[in-house]
Design a protein around this nucleic acid. Structure first.
Lengths: 133, 133
DNA sequence: GTATCTGCAAAACATTTGCAATTCT
DNA sequence: AGAATTGCAAATGTTTTGCAGATAC
């Protein structure tokens, strides 16, 4: 299935902007910020505005196609990987790593009556490279 | 040990502002925002400024006395409870609940070489009260 | 032709910064 | 007096909003 069909099947009309933004997220698994997406697509879509990037990402999240990360202090980050995984931010090199772990049960038991709809696990520390030095 | 001594033993000079802000966090376990702290203490300390609240909270976090939560979209929340626990935000009543669970291992296994220094688990959904209706 | 989408400019807000006034010892 | 703390005002930077023009069906 191509991206155009994927958007359509989620009730999103595939405009050029939306296709390119989704494609960027798909090709670049770097949890980009709005600014990174905007700057990267400016050359291909010279009329692109940040407003459109914001709007589009909001639609994608609403439809469950991406998730918004709150791991940075100052700005939002976006992840096209909506599978059950976690994020590790290296406080030295600033990179965000995806952490997959199928063996550990990382969902805390909730009190009776609580219904969890979304979960995010964020970790901060040193990555493999940065912990060496 | 009183709050004044607690601050001193963490290398923080206990000014009136710092004592009151710490005391507010200690007495009100509601994960308050800067604004909530500021408004609540204004009547007791008429000259209080938000800058001081920001500065003080930053010092407290740096010294490990509190933790800063990134569970809200738009503002920081502060928690005086630095024990290993998690947060659940009800998307209906907007309250933030503390979740304690000693039985579940909520720390994902990290790839070799990664060193975790801080972890935050955030959940969103409906609390006991709001899920009833 | 109508509804949706896009994008500019301005607004809104939380947080930070510079610096002068204040406080404490 | 000297060092640390406080607080005002301005700046910063991200995200949102209003609205007019463009686009799609």
């Amino acid at each position: 299935m191509n991206i155009s069909d994927l958007l359509l099947s989620n009730g999103i009309k595939p405009s050029i902007q939306r296709l390119q933004i989704f494609n960027f997220l798909f090709e670049n698994r770097i949890h980009p910020s709005v600014d990174e997406i905007f700057i990267s697509l400016c050359s291909q879509i010279p009329t692109l505005s940040k407003t459109t990037v914001y709007n589009t990402l909001k639609i994608f999240e609403k439809k469950g196609l991406i998730q918004t990360l709150k791991i940075e202090d100052d700005e939002l980050r976006f992840d096209i990987d909506i599978s059950d995984h976690y994020h590790f931010k290296c406080t030295k090199c600033k990179k965000i790593f995806d952490i997959y772990d199928n063996n550990t049960n990382t969902t805390p038991t909730l009190p009776h009556g609580f219904i969890c709809k979304k979960k995010q696990i964020n970790m901060w520390g040193l990555c493999k490279n940065c912990s060496k030095n």
